[in-house]
Design a binder for these strands. Structure first.
Lengths: 319, 319
DNA sequence: TTGTATGCGTTATCAT
DNA sequence: ATGATAACGCATACAA
């Protein structure tokens, strides 16, 4: 493959001049410029990216950490990130973690050793202190409320959203409200739990820990939820379900068990995915693709910024 | 950051020797080896990957071309690929194409210019001739039956599988059978259509082109399918649905419209995803993760190989 | 077994 | 405006 040395020879100029036209630098005469351009044309020349990377100390690679690639929430986030990456001429390196910490550390490790320029963590398992340690090595962008923490973030105020949703259900006459969550340990989950507790405190409602159902991620987990509901002496009359997929699964399963929605059970899903529209599920719209877009933009920006994304309740037939 | 030169100085050896122990080459005395190892330890040294890449002309990067990241089929494939990549110390570069050819060409372009070592195309839009042109630049691995074509492939014999499924439905008394597909133009789709035609020929059945429904990818597309069914004078009595997601959508929608399954409409889904099990949908199991795994292994292997993946009919309640 | 010297293809510095 | 040359960090052919 031809390199800039070849081009220089062909065009009768120095490698520096070639490099200048290659990178649109000023101070090069029109005459030499066309000569170089012609050489490029003739030789079908293309830069050796690896050499550029070595020379610049940058890779144009951005790591994306997420637990599952086959989950719609992360799929949509990734979609938004990927689109921007394309536009900005970055490539994405995927770290599918299954929430195994070592895999997340691997990503951090790569950031540390300049194998990626920046890291987007869509959902993390490692402690904040570990993230913090790696901040000096490059930009890390998070998808959770970490305000005051010197990391860029794009997040939803899950506390407020959850609280509002609970209030909404309360206004509809519900006082026994449960919710399902992907995993309990994330920051977002903890904020929601806090909202849940505060809500119960505010209205002096009894707090039942078994109204909180863990590890609900996919459509098929709806079955599990309904089963748990059936096993309760006094099941909740309303459910906040933090994924439309799961909500759809619950709705489907309820039909099988002749549980009438919303009469016996009200449901609010999250994300307002197409499936929610199709099944007429009331849902809280979260613009995931837009969040992904913003995450990427923050990832390639040196300044720390925090963006709160606003959401919208879409009222349909399950409440 | 410290480099091998530093290490060499610290350990009192040459850079070559350092490089040797770094890469586990023979011919280095135990004594010098430990000295180098100690230096590595002390300095918290790590290779500069970019330099390695430039020097070797390899990137340890494998491109993955797929149309959608938020689709379960590709999500599962990607999961299998990602797991192997992790084990083999490769990183994945994602090309989300939305079936826009230029994005696929971008991936081919990167292969051509050594920015990635190998390319896995999960689903393509570009012509075979274009793929073929790029074969000389690196390994390309396909997810379709391209036997005799000098590319590595991991595929399902969709012709046979489809034919068998049709025969199965026929044996259950169905003669008006339709099917849904993601897009019509792929190789896999064409093989299925061929099977569909041949089946009708074999049993001298009338071929209705409107029994074939296009662009069915997601759960919510089930609605579209049922609507089309309702608009037909003589709708099919059975449907092959090339995605359990869509099948689940159809089943859900049928309940809404009081279409009894399997009495009025029989359904066979594909992939045997968890959602199929939950909703008791008869499905053809395709081990997507395993396919992903195999795709990756082929991608890092210089020899061309073709692997046919066998599938299994899982009988449940929709036929 | 070990080391010297050179190549990999760019970008950046500095002098002119 | 232009060019020589160093630097990026590693691998390796070749010499010893």
């Amino acid at each position: 493959m031809t390199n800039i040395k070849d081009l220089a020879r062909m065009a009768g100029v120095s490698v520096t001049t070639v490099s200048r036209v290659l990178n649109n630098h000023p101070y090069v005469s029109e005459q030499k410029k066309v000569a170089v351009l012609r050489a490029i044309e003739e030789s079908n020349y293309h830069k050796n990216i690896n050499a550029v990377h070595l020379s610049k100390g940058k890779t144009q690679l951005i790591g994306v950490v997420l637990p599952y690639t086959d989950h719609s929430y992360f799929g949509q986030l990734l979609k938004g990130i990927a689109k921007q990456a394309l536009e900005h001429n970055y490539k994405l390196v995927l770290f599918q973690t299954d929430y195994i910490e070592s895999r997340e550390l691997e990503a951090l490790y790569m950031l540390k050793h300049k194998q990626i320029d920046s890291l987007i963590i869509c959902s993390r398992t490692s402690n904040w202190s570990i993230i913090e340690e790696h901040l000096v090595y490059g930009t890390i962008t998070l998808c959770e409320n970490m305000i005051n923490k010197k990391v860029s973030t794009t997040f939803v105020n899950h506390y407020e959203v959850f609280f509002d949703a609970l209030e909404y259900l309360y206004s509809k006459g519900h006082s026994k409200i449960g919710y399902t969550i992907g995993r309990k340990s994330g920051t977002n989950s903890q904020n929601r739990e806090r909202a849940y507790r505060d809500f119960h405190k505010k209205y002096n409602l009894p707090y039942n820990s078994y109204y909180i159902m863990d590890e609900c991620l996919y459509f098929e987990d709806g079955e599990k939820v309904v089963k748990q509901l059936n096993d309760m002496d006094t099941p909740p009359t309303a459910l906040l379900i933090t994924s439309d997929q799961v909500a759809a699964g619950v709705v489907t399963c309820c039909q099988k068990h002749n549980i009438s929605i919303p009469d016996q059970l009200s449901i609010i899903g999250f994300d307002n995915e197409p499936i929610a529209k199709m099944m007429n599920i009331t849902s809280i719209e979260i613009p995931l693709e837009e969040m992904g877009k913003n995450l990427f933009l923050q990832a390639i920006n040196d300044q720390v910024s925090n963006k709160e994304i606003s959401v919208k309740l879409i009222q349909r037939k399950t409440v």
